[in-house]
Structures are given as C-alpha cells and as structure tokens.
C-alpha cells in the first residue's frame, strides 16, 4: 500500500497530507495524555508500534502470485484506540520513507491516511461493534485486524484511482484495476494478520493481564460475561 515517492500529483499529495494532519495531531495529544496518565503503558505502546514495524516490513506471497505486506495496525487500534495508532503508524511510514525508500515523503499523507487512519478506525469500529453485540474477544480481534489490513489497501486503490483515472472507464474503472492489484492480493494476508493479532493478544493477556485490563481489553469481556473463565476462554475459542 506504500504509494511510491512522487507517484501522486502535487495537488493530491497535498490534499491527503492536509486530510491526514488533524488525525495525527489529535493522535499526538492522545498519546501524550496516555503516557502521562498511565506511564507504565509506555512499553506496551512501543510493542504495538514494533508490531506494525515488523508486519509492514514483512512481504508475504499471496494467491495472486504477487507479494504484499500486512500493516499491523489492528493491534494498536484495539489496545490504544485509533488516534494513538495513527501516530505510531505515521512514524513507521516516515521511517520506511526516509531509510528504505519505501513509500515517500510526498506520499506520506496519503499512506498515513490509508494505513494509520482508515485501517485503525475500521479495525476499532469492527472490534467495538462485535464486542457490543456480545461477540467473543477472539472473533472481534481477528476481524478487526483482518479488516484494518484489507481496508487500508482498498483506500490505497481509491487514492491511486482518483489520481490516475482510467482513460475509458474513469475513476471507477481505475479503482477496480488497482483494487485487483492491491485488495485481492491482500485477502490471504489479511487473514494471516488476523491470526497473528489474535495470537499476540492471547499472549499479552497471559503476560500482562493487568495492563490489558487497564486498557479495557479484558475487563469489558468480564463485565459482560460475569464469569472469569469465559473471558480468556473466549479468546481461546
């Protein structure tokens, strides 16, 4: 989903940067607040950023015969809410643009919008919805992570289609073309990311239940089900 440096016309690049900026600024404030009110969560914040750092560097083969990478933003969105994940994602994208020539500074706004804003919000929305409807934690985390990943690539396809509409079929035709490159390749990877995120959440619940309870990931399920075994058993199921 990394749109390469210079591959968005200046107007588009500027527009996406302007669109992404308020989310990142708001996220910075949320991040400062988080660290101030709960200094112990700093380490987990780093871990959530690290998860995205690893996954977005990991190019995996897909059924379409091409390679792509997951985004790793679902985890941070579930743990710390989307605004904070926006900042972490933006930092990851910045490093990749500067050090790896992966993505770019002119396309940082557009890439941030897809990977660090839409992805986390979609993921968190799905997560919150499933939890509210009484769905299990495991299912909620799986779908959140998978759809955060997939939606990111859909946004990238739309961004490219808007900048490079097809000569015959226009923006819609171009979106279908870019979608067939990005979104379809991404389906198995999104499922992989879902599995991985559930795995990490399970390990986190075991390693630091207190921290996840403070963040509301575990407590919610306990409150809902009333019984303890169900909360972790749910993730296990």
């Amino acid at each position: 989903m990394h749109i390469a440096e210079g591959y968005l016309p200046p107007l588009h690049a500027a527009a996406w940067t302007v669109a992404a900026a308020p989310f990142v600024v708001h996220g910075c404030r949320a991040l400062v607040r988080q660290v101030r009110t709960d200094p112990e969560s700093k380490l987990l914040l780093g871990a959530a950023g690290a998860f995205s750092f690893v996954l977005s560097a990991l190019k995996l083969p897909s059924v379409t015969g091409s390679c792509s990478h997951p985004t790793g933003t679902g985890l941070g969105a579930i743990l710390f809410k989307p605004p904070i994940m926006s900042v972490l994602g933006c930092i990851v994208l910045f490093f990749q643009a500067v050090i790896l020539a992966h993505g770019g500074l002119t396309t940082l706004g557009a890439n941030t919008f897809s990977m660090a804003i839409v992805g986390p919000w979609v993921g968190y929305g799905i997560y919150a919805l499933i939890r509210k409807l009484g769905g299990g934690l495991g299912v909620a985390v799986f779908l959140a992570a998978a759809l955060a990943d997939l939606s990111t690539y859909c946004v990238t396809s739309i961004q490219l289609a808007l900048a490079f509409p097809d000569a015959d079929s226009g923006v819609f035709g171009a979106a279908v073309k870019f979608g067939s490159i990005f979104a379809i390749t991404q389906v198995p990877l999104a499922i992989s990311e879902g599995f991985l995120t559930v795995l990490v959440i399970r390990l986190l619940i075991k390693a630091s239940p207190g921290e996840l309870s403070r963040l509301g990931v575990v407590r919610d399920s306990v409150r809902r089900s009333g019984a303890s075994a169900a909360s972790v058993g749910e993730v296990a199921a």
């Binding site: 990394h2 591959y7 190019k59 091409s66 792509s68 992966h102 990238t156 990005f182």
Partner: peptide, 13 residues
Amino acid sequence: VSGEFAGSDDQGQ
C-alpha cells in the same frame, strides 16, 4: 501458485 511474486506496490506503480 506459479507467479513472479513481485511486490504489489511495484505492480501498482
């Protein structure tokens, strides 16, 4: 699957 397994970012480009 037989394919070149090129990056989708590059294919988009």
